[in-house]
Computed example of a mutant assay.
Amino acid sequence: MVNERVKDMTLTNYWWLLIWLVVIGGVLAIVAPKSTVQVLGKTEYRWSWPAVILLACPYAVWCMNRSNFGDTEVYRTTFLNAPAVISQIPMYLAEHTKDKGFSVLMILIKSVVGNSDKLFFLIIAVFQIFCVVYFFRKFSTSFLLCMFMFVASTDYLSWMFNGMRQFIAVCITLLCFGLALKKKYIFAVCLILIAATIHGSALLMLPILFVVQGKAWNKRTILMMAGVGVAILFMNQFTTILDTMLAETQYSDLMTNEIWTNDNGTNIFRMLFYSIPAILSLIGKRFVDEENSAVINMCVNCSICTALMYLLSVFSSGIYIGRLPIYTTLQGYVAVPWLIDHMFTKESARLVKMVLICGFLAFFYYQMHLTWGII
């Protein structure tokens, strides 16, 4: 009976994404006991795991029961047509050469759950939501606000309902954050290389891993800004260089295919929206420098990378370049509540958070109603 109820939990009213978060999350924030975590040797008070799991569970179940959203049917068909026997992996990989890690993962899951596409989606969703909540719980001063930004920005729908394969890679690289803070680069690089077998775009995190080190707004981030500026000014030459770099990869036809040539780039409104953490950090740079927190420094630098990649996608491709900033977007969310609490007085911080929440709600409505037309 319980299993049937879980299967029937199909998301038909997308407002429930926010209603659950606000109502249940608000109650848990008040009544759930806090627990301690160690962040770079410092004791921090965070949500307890039972409260985190309770809040996150429906988001995994809704992913399991999704249908006809984005690439869902493509993933479903691919899974149903894949072999269910591990010994057939070499034969399958010989025919499917793109992102072999995902193919192996899919067959391994199918060998356990059989032909149940719902269980396949559930296992992937549980892993993804665990990585997200683990990251927010450990490194954010406001777990609930970060979850709200993740859901209200429609990142949850865009990636866990749609770009599932790339988001698996994103979640694996998200686990590198703590390793990078402790300068365990060998382990971090190994994780990134594993993520790249799931989705090749994860290789982007190799240079970013070192760009985001050090103080916020350091010389490396400024150099990256200059590089993006040059790429925009010389877009034709930039696309030629990118085409040459991709010549021997699975993305060799990227610059000439119909999707790229007909792509008008990312909407500038979207670019400005996702640049909020970077803009806020620039305004409050003095507070960031005074605190000199390794976590906040890295999160701020990640937010700069997000803003720059979105800026580049405005002038190039929203479909291809515009999908890359997700690798550093969630880190920027972590910086936001810290910046607000340190830049403003207690009373002003409440007001700023309310304005921020209203802004994210407006974006949610814009994306869900005007862009996607699903509410």
Results as ranks from 00 to 15, higher is better:
Tyr14Trp: 09
Trp16Val: 10
Trp20Tyr: 11
Trp20Gln: 02
Gly25Asp: 06
Gly26Trp: 04
Ile30Phe: 13
Ser35Cys: 13
Val37Asn: 01
Val37Pro: 03
Glu44Pro: 00
Tyr45Leu: 08
Trp49Pro: 12
Val52Tyr: 05
Ile53Gln: 03
Leu55Asn: 07
Ala56Phe: 01
Ala56Met: 06
Cys57His: 04
Pro58Val: 12
Pro58Cys: 09
Ala60Glu: 02
Met64Arg: 03
Asn65Ala: 07
Arg66Lys: 08
Ser67Phe: 10
Asn68Leu: 10
Phe69Asp: 05
Thr72Tyr: 12
Val74Tyr: 09
Leu80Glu: 10
Pro83Ser: 08
Ser87Arg: 00
Gln88Lys: 13
Gln88Ala: 15
Ile89Gly: 08
Met91Thr: 15
Tyr92Trp: 08
Asp99Phe: 02
Lys100Arg: 11
Phe102Cys: 12
Phe102Val: 13
Phe102Arg: 14
Leu105Thr: 06
Leu105Phe: 13
Met106Asp: 01
Ile107Arg: 01
Ile107Ser: 05
Ile107Glu: 03
Ser111His: 13
Val113Ala: 11
Ser116Asn: 10
Phe121Lys: 03
Phe121Ala: 08
Leu122Ser: 06
Phe130Thr: 10
Tyr134Thr: 05
Phe136Gly: 00
Lys138Met: 07
Phe139Thr: 00
Phe139Glu: 05
Thr141His: 10
Thr141Ser: 09
Ser142Lys: 09
Cys146Phe: 03
Phe148Gln: 08
Val151Gly: 01
Thr154Cys: 10
Met160Val: 11
Leu174Ile: 09
Gly178Arg: 11
Ala180Tyr: 02
Ala180Lys: 02
Ala180His: 02
Ile186Tyr: 12
Ile192Cys: 08
Ile194Trp: 12
Ala195Arg: 01
Ala195His: 01
Ala196Lys: 00
Thr197Arg: 06
Thr197Asn: 09
His199Pro: 04
His199Gln: 13
Ser201Gln: 03
Ser201Pro: 00
Leu203Asn: 05
Leu204Glu: 07
Met205Asn: 06
Val211Leu: 14
Arg220Leu: 13
Ala226Thr: 15
Ala226Gln: 04
Gly227Val: 07
Gly227Met: 07
Val228His: 08
Ile232Cys: 09
Phe234Ala: 12
Asn236Trp: 02
Asn236Arg: 07
Gln237Pro: 12
Asp243Ala: 10
Ser252Asp: 04
Asp253Phe: 11
Asp253Arg: 08
Leu254Ile: 01
Ile259Cys: 05
Asp263Gln: 01
Gly265Arg: 03
Leu272Ile: 14
Ser281Pro: 00
Ile283Val: 13
Ile283Lys: 15
Val288Phe: 03
Glu290Asn: 11
Glu291Asn: 08
Val300Ile: 14
Cys302Tyr: 08
Cys302Met: 13
Ser303Leu: 00
Thr306Leu: 07
Thr306Phe: 02
Ala307Cys: 11
Tyr310Ile: 02
Leu312Arg: 00
Leu312Phe: 10
Ser313Thr: 01
Val314Met: 11
Val314Ile: 08
Gly318Phe: 14
Gln331Ser: 15
Gly332Ala: 07
Tyr333Phe: 15
Trp338Thr: 11
Met343Arg: 09
Phe344Arg: 05
Glu347Phe: 11
Val352Thr: 03
Val352Pro: 06
Lys353Tyr: 08
Gly359Phe: 15
Ala362Arg: 08
Phe364Thr: 02
Met368Gln: 09
His369Lys: 14
Leu370Gln: 11
Gly373Ala: 09
Ile374Ala: 05
Ile375Arg: 01
Ile375Gly: 12
Ile375Ala: 13
